[in-house]
Amino acid sequence: MSTLTLPNPGLGTFRLKGDTLKRTIHDALDLGYRHIDTAQMYDNEQDVGAAIAASDVPRESLFLTTKVWHDRLEPASLKASVRESLEKLGTDYVNLLLIHWPSPDDAVPMADYLKALHEVQQAGQARHIGVSNFTIAQVDRALEILGPDALLTNQVEVHPFLQNREVVEHCQARGLTVTGYMPLAVGKVLEDETLKGIAEAHGVTPAQVALAWIRSCGVVAIPSSTRREHLAANLEAFEIMLSDEELQAIAGLDRGERIADPDFAPDWD
């Protein structure tokens, strides 16, 4: 499926709540963002919904993603979770519904929760479905269960220090768009000398270089920021063209530095 389905970049909302989140969404939509990423676990769907409702941007022009947490994967619980999310978001549907994490130790069989996810889509509550934090083997299993064109994306951690190349390339080869979360490595990109050097050459910031690199990999980024000037800069980053030499230098920064690695995570590739 084309990455055009998923506007790039999107706005990540992890850890944002209340008036801060509402103001951030207002600024982002004003600047031209049309993709907002939230999750039930973020405990901010109600604020996201209020911000969207207060916006002049019509709902049909927005791409809205939410996710089902791993303790709600039993089919009846998953469907109830989606109904709760839609109520909080103040919408009849999300554009993309993700399984946030695979079921730890396969406590709920994948076939059970993916079929429930597909049924939610068939009921019109999600335009697209996908997964998050799935390994290569789990992606392949999911596609065996649902069929080769069923999933839009696998959302995984991607930044210059964890480039996740095997997962990215495998998903893209199977027709999935990859969405990269924590694309700025929670600010660590700002301190890297290689990125700073490339940024200086372009008259931009290291964060913008990191986002330009992610775009060059064909990955959809969902950076998070509460400052309007940073939101604007993140959009502008997608116009930056890096040279082959610069891309090669960034490729050399991969050190497998994983930031999101909870105790219930799968055995990573």
Rank of each mutant, 00 (worst) to 15 (best):
I145V: 15
N164E: 08
E193Y: 00
Y93D: 02
V178F: 12
Q172Y: 02
E191D: 15
N154I: 08
V156Y: 07
G147Q: 11
L143D: 02
V186K: 15
L97A: 04
G180T: 03
V139N: 14
L96C: 09
P148N: 03
L114R: 04
A142T: 02
L143F: 02
V94K: 05
L97H: 03
V168H: 07
L96H: 05
D192V: 06
K115W: 14
T179Y: 13
L98G: 13
D106N: 14
A123F: 06
A173M: 07
K88P: 12
I129Y: 00
V108K: 00
D149A: 12
N95E: 14
M110W: 09
F134K: 01
G124D: 08
E87Q: 15
L114V: 01
L176S: 00
Q138K: 13
R127S: 14
L86T: 14
L86C: 13
I99D: 02
V178K: 04
N95G: 05
I99C: 00
Q172K: 10
A185K: 10
P102M: 02
A107H: 11
L151E: 10
S132F: 01
S77T: 14
Y93C: 03
D106M: 06
D106A: 07
D140E: 15
A76I: 13
G175W: 12
P148D: 07
A185R: 11
D149S: 12
L146V: 03
K88W: 14
S77A: 15
V139G: 12
L151F: 11
A137Q: 08
A76C: 08
D140C: 11
H118I: 07
G130M: 05
Q155E: 09
A111R: 07
P104K: 12
P102G: 02
N133S: 11
P104E: 08
E193A: 14
Y93H: 14
Q172I: 03
E119G: 05
A107W: 10
I99L: 04
L146G: 07
R127D: 15
H118N: 13
I99W: 00
Q172E: 06
L152K: 03
N133C: 06
A137E: 10
A185P: 07
G124S: 04
